[in-house]
Amino acid sequence: MEHDSKLRRLLIGSSLLVVYVVGYFFVHGYFRQDNLRGAEYKSAVASLPARVPASAAGAQLNRMIEILQSLERGGPQEMLGLGFDAQPLNDFLGQDLYDMQATLVLLREGQLAAAESKLELLATKVARAQSRSVRLLQTLSALGLILAGGLAVYVLYAGVSLRRHWQQEITVLSEPDGLPLIPTNFSELLEYVVREESSFTGHHAKLKISGADTSQLPSPLSMIVEQIVEQMVRNSVQHGGRPPDVRVMSGKPEFMTVHVAIKETDSDYIVAVRDDGEGIDCDEIVARAVELKLLDQAEADAMLLESAIKLIFHADFHSANKQLSLSETDQSLGELRLLIKSVGGFISIQNQLREYCQFTIRFPKDDIEVKTIG
């Protein structure tokens, strides 16, 4: 699951990078073309002051007036042999608006010196607007490179992280002094179960074992205890565990601890499996039992906590959100209860929602025998 998350981040990052690069070239191309048109505009307008006629020659003066009116409207322009499309003058200048009508009045009245000064002011404002366009293009280019670089670094990081995760998986499974692929004793089997179920579900857990070893138990009890404990450990990781970030947010350690204890007294063999996971939600158990038609709503409403929690041992009870298990012999708690009864054992539960859950099994020494349960 962690592998899927890393792969998803890599795919998302790569897709964003490709989309961004394509989009950047389109946007950058548009602004670059706009900047080139601005440079042509600037070059043409810069020549206007020198073209003010020395005398008020009618045709030449009228031509100058036509040029200025054409610049004011925008569109195709022909000046100094340059053919280009220009924005309307005030749109190009932005906040540096230009009083075209005053310039035209000066030209028509023959006040050429004043008109020349106005056209020099126009050339200055056009140059300033074009300079802003250049700075905008430069800023866009710099930001584009920074953002593209950031996305590239993210994709590289996601790729390296995914590769490292893949290498770690292969390395852990192949280390000569690591966990054997085939456990040699029951403790190693439980370590293997916790590790594999943690990887499968994303519910990180660690195992703690204390007390006697199952090899010290009499036959057939040893095999039955191993079967029961293995399944209960699987159940703890599957149903009691949560992803590390969820546990941390609820104030718990990142890893859930599954504690297995086997103890021998003068009269009993005692086996306990405890975890600091989510515990058993009795309300959910009762609701699920109603859904499975194991009891009706009136019975559910009147049911006491002690009776409600026992429903998980009903032969037909199973969780609605039961995950697929790595075990090919996955057993329900009802089946485990029958197995415990087959050797004269008893089971008890200690539970606190969101805190812990513990199953304790007592096998009286005097009653250990294989029984047939009808």
Rank of each mutant, 00 (worst) to 15 (best):
E355W: 04
I146W: 12
D99Y: 08
S14W: 03
T372R: 01
L173N: 08
E175N: 15
M256R: 01
N35R: 10
A114N: 11
S219L: 11
V52F: 03
V286T: 05
E291P: 07
I368F: 04
L112R: 10
D4N: 08
G240Y: 13
T171D: 14
D281M: 03
N35A: 09
Q238R: 10
V273H: 03
V271A: 00
S47I: 12
W166D: 12
S47Q: 15
D367G: 09
H314L: 03
I182R: 08
V52Q: 01
Q101E: 14
C357F: 11
A54E: 13
S332W: 07
F25W: 11
E299L: 03
E188L: 08
N62T: 08
A272D: 05
G241A: 06
S117K: 10
Q238I: 04
V21Q: 08
E369G: 06
P243W: 07
G29A: 00
M1D: 06
Q168M: 10
I312Q: 01
S236N: 05
Q323H: 08
E169Q: 15
L82D: 08
I349T: 09
V286L: 02
Q358Y: 01
S55P: 00
L136R: 14
I65H: 02
E169Y: 12
I347W: 00
Q352F: 02
V193K: 06
E191Y: 09
